[in-house]
Design a protein around this nucleic acid. Structure first.
Lengths: 335, 335
DNA sequence: CTGAAAGCGCTTACAG
DNA sequence: CTGAAAGCGCTTACAG
């Protein structure tokens, strides 16, 4: 019994082999693909491994196999509450499957995103790009070098998970129509945001259907400050309903309007997107179109997983649907 | 010129060696420790590397060196807004130094944390445990096997980054004393939370100094719901000031008190901790003791970095001080 | 200054 | 079913 000698040294398959009286290759087999060995050998190896508290060295395993069991997750802003549930969903699905997450924050910078993607792709088995700000061509190139799944963006030839904005927007339009509104203003997010464009298209479509006139304002940062900055423009236009690209902007806008003496929803109705943490803290609480972000995160991981396992790309997507959450920031059109 | 043949294959130092007309060892040297080679050789190697768009395989590099340039970050709840800025700070410091982050969420579970720590320690160069819920002995053991830094927790023999609660609490106590309050109730967070205990101790000390009577209530989850659940107890006690363990609890408490017709701050003053996102959305906005979480994250990474580089442990800690942010949830003691 | 060799800890055809 | 050998892509004493 010398298994607890030299406590500092990390234990390898050679140690186990020695203790179990088999060859290193046998140890490797017993540990990686059970059932291929004689039960007694396998048991001897397992016993020895447990006794020595063996844990395979992931790097050493990765070298011959080319698999690290790591997934790179690239987000544009870790402090943006929109991503919390999404990251949570990805993380929990990954951990359950024995994968670990490599997190990179790009601070909304294209060049950081591009560099990070290339670096992560060197070590991760697959990449998850959330709300990517990259060009289509950059993304296509990345996706070619490594299994990639896009979240909240679509691109031909690349798999993606996109929350279907349509349903929730449809509800919202019907709802404001019922309240007597006949026009709306959409406040877009960043120029490079695929999702902002997508929402605008859905809004136009549903608005046309409901005979509501839809206009769009200029782009702003998808933040509280972005919403604040939009206030001047909004006041100038004086719409009866504003759809902001996201809750952050809606909240900033609401605050700034309040300062200017414009009250929500009496003077103007406000609708956001995402139902982020805190969107119900405001006065009035924000009416918003919620996305199942946790589910989207889980699904995104499953997609990556499927690619890694070489599964067909046909997978039927479970519905990832938005829905309207009516709170206090919307009301009847004022006379 | 055959450097762009077989486009699928990943390029290795052997490819570069061939193109540059040197040995693989020379390539390795040129790339990892410039200045040790003749300038012309080095340049030839660099040129070839650039032409082939070479990027070293991190796993292959990790095997002989034992260094992965990855840091494991373990947090108890990624959806908790308290962690956003902290994670952001860690991430930005890490990226700047060429490190990448392995993120694990433990969902407040001790066993998940324990398993994750052991797994991550197999691949990361160092570990960052944020608000760890583990036992002292578990932590000590982990810290022994891998460079470890604790955030928001202290333990003998393990380095840590702790935001100094004292200053902000001192300000808060002086402030409520000035408002005429003579007693306060502290609502603790989870039992296993070192930080909750730490805050309570500071509160007691400062309160004693200001001749304010401090009591503490029962433990609750550090969440909005935890705060809501505490409402019944708080109403029963009827204090004039409540310090909640964190903003989440303070917000939940405020909501539930409002439902019961107890208004803040007229009937009761409320103070939270952390100044999380959204704490200024509430009505009234929350008075809170803010922590420099982004800075704490950066510092935590620097500490780990210093350990990895074998720097002495004496480092003078830059002050990481809390401060009081007075908003609407606190007011004079009612008659 | 540079090359040949050994080694990091695994996995996996290839034999037997 | 199991072992000996080669190899994954690097790094680093050791020679020269």
């Amino acid at each position: 019994m010398d298994e607890d000698k030299s406590p500092g040294r990390t234990v390898t398959i050679y140690d186990i082999a020695r203790i179990a009286g088999v060859s290193p290759s046998t140890v490797s087999r017993a540990l990686t693909r059970p059932g291929r060995l004689s039960p007694k050998t396998e048991e001897r190896v397992r016993d020895a491994a447990t006794r020595l508290n063996y844990h395979a060295n992931p790097m050493a395993r990765a070298l011959p196999t080319g698999k690290t069991s790591m997934i790179g997750l690239i987000v544009s802003d870790v402090t943006n509450p929109v991503f919390f549930d999404l990251v949570h969903g990805v993380e929990s699905a990954a951990r359950r499957d024995g994968y670990t997450l490599l997190l990179t924050n790009t601070d909304e910078s294209m060049s950081v995103e591009s560099v990070s993607a290339r670096q992560l792709s060197r070590v991760a088995d697959g990449l998850l790009l959330v709300s990517s700000r990259l060009n289509d061509t950059d993304i296509a190139q990345i996706a070619q070098s490594k299994p990639t799944v896009l979240v909240n963006r679509e691109l031909d030839g690349v798999r993606s998970v996109v929350v279907d904005a349509e349903y929730g927007i449809g509800e919202a339009i019907r709802y404001i129509a019922g309240l007597g509104h006949t026009s709306l203003l959409y406040l877009p997010g960043p120029e490079r945001s695929w999702m902002s464009e997508h929402r605008w298209e859905c809004i136009q479509q549903k608005a046309a259907w409901a005979r509501i006139q839809a206009r769009r304002g200029p782009s702003h940062a998808p933040t509280i400050d972005g919403g604040r900055e939009a206030a001047a423009y909004v006041r100038e236009q004086g719409p009866s309903v504003v759809f902001a690209y996201n809750d952050l902007m809606a909240i900033g806008l609401m605050q700034e309007l309040a300062v200017a003496g414009i009250s929500t929803p009496q003077d103007m109705s406000l609708i956001g997107f995402d139902d982020i943490f805190g969107s119900d803290f405001t006065t009035p609480a924000l009416t918003t179109i919620a996305s199942p972000l946790f589910d989207a995160g889980q699904l995104a991981f499953q997609r990556i997983r499927a690619m890694l396992d070489g599964q067909p790309g046909i997978e039927t997507a479970p519905p990832l649907s938005t829905r309207l959450i009516v709170r206090g920031s919307t009301g009847p059109r004022h006379a």
